[in-house]
Structure formats: C-alpha cells, structure tokens
Design a protein around this nucleic acid. Structure first.
Lengths: 113, 113
DNA sequence: TCGATTGTTTGATGATTGTCGAACCAAAAC
DNA sequence: GTTTTGGTTCGACAATCATCAAACAATCGA
C-alpha cells in the first residue's frame, strides 16, 4: 500500500537549468564530495546517511536540495530513507563534459585546495 | 622608458587553481558576459571600458579581479588602459571543455535565465 | 503504541559575494 | 601644468550562502 504523505521530490527539466546554476552547485566542496561518492564505481544510488560528510543533518539536507534543484541528482524515497543518484545521461547531454571535469579534478586537485 | 609604477598584474599558475574556483568565477552572469565578449570572433584582447556591462567601474574592476585570480583571463597594461584576454590554451588544458560549455550556453540559455 | 531512525523545516548566525560612491593613482591629451 | 580618461582601492551596504540546534514528520522495528 502506498504511503500516505511520503515525501516526493520534484526534479527540474534539465533544459530549464542554466549552466550557472549547475556550476554554482558544483563550486562547493561538500556537494562535489557528494557527487564523487555517488559516481564511485561508475555511479550508484545512495541514501543521505551513507555519506561521510561530518556535517549536521540539516546542512546535508540543504546540500542535497541544491544538487536536486540544479538537476544534478535524482532523489526518491524508500521507506524512511531517501535515495539519490546522479542524473548522468541527462547531465552529459545538457552539459557535455561537466561531470567528467568534476570527477577528473579529484585526481588533479592541488594539495592546498 | 618603462613606466615608473605602472600596474602589473599577477596571474596564477593554472595548475594551482582548483576547478571550484573557476566554476565560482563563471557562475556569475556579469563575468560570463565578460568571457563571452572576449571570446567573440575566436578570442580577442579588450580593455575594461570596451564592455557593455552597465555597472560601476568598481564593480567591473572587481569582476576582472576574480576572473584573473581564477586564471581565466590574462591582463596587461598599455598606457592607461588594461587589456585582457582569455587564457584559452591553458584553460582548455587544465579544464578541458569548460570554456566550450560556457560559450555553448549562450545559445542554449533558457529564456527566463 | 512506543521508540528509533532518517530526513525536513525553521530561525538564527557568521561568512562570503556583488554592488556602489568617493577618493585616489597613473598615463594620455591638451 | 592642468584636465581628462581608465582603472584601483576603500568602506559601506544588501543579498546570498553555508552552517547549526531544535523541533517536527514519516517510516520501520520492537
């Protein structure tokens, strides 16, 4: 039986998302860490509490909001968990190479960053 | 005879610039407009007052600072003008595809952006 | 039904960012 | 030498952003 009032998330049409919004979302270290963790092993779906972020639950929730609103991740609820994954295909189509840049940067990041 | 104390600008080694800094710099509409104007006709060098930005001189100076510090543009003085151009080659090498994304976005920008 | 878990929302705080006018500096034009 | 022009710096302000504690909501487990 479907849940009564379970959370549903709205996801923008990526064609409606400006590049600046995606860049703004990916300019924050915490959000980049989220995306990289999701993209490990080719891409997977993870729940909010499966990240090693050392931040409050409110902050993490906030960051997932921003990534969702920028069209970078897709989120669905399963029981009391919310599961998110990167919208790889659509993202690549809308912003070719952006995700690759972000993933490549992990290896290239200067020590002081 | 070389000028006494003419402005000289320092430019970061692009290998020292994190992707997040470049993205942050390019997430602002004014700075993106600057980059696009510089890149029109394949790339050119322009002075600060050759942009149609409708902002105060202090604000424009501020935006050029950020682009320079993010390693996106190179600036030199010529008389009382400062001339800037996009560091295309180095930028493409360090962040492959980033500039292309920014330039492609102009055509693709949703009406409401 | 109650307790635990996952996640959201609210309101607040501090930091960061974009903006500007005014004052200032350097070079060119007169 | 003075005026004009291009650009920088300073200090201030408003907006935005990242952060959190506390309270709350929905679901699962006992």
């Amino acid at each position: 039986m479907p849940p009564k009032t379970s959370r549903t998330y709205t996801h923008p049409d990526l064609n409606e998302v400006p590049l600046a919004a995606a860049m703004q979302a990916l300019a924050d270290p915490s959000r980049v860490a989220i995306v990289r963790t999701l993209m490990a092993d080719g891409g997977r779906e993870l729940a909010c509490n499966e990240f090693d972020l050392c931040q409050s639950k409110a902050t993490i929730s906030h960051h997932f909001d921003i990534l969702r609103e920028a069209g970078i991740i897709h989120t669905r609820t399963e029981g009391r968990r919310c599961l998110s994954k990167v919208r790889q295909g659509e993202l690549e189509k809308r912003f070719p190479g952006l995700l690759k840049l972000v993933l490549a940067e992990e290896a290239a990041t200067p020590a002081k960053a």
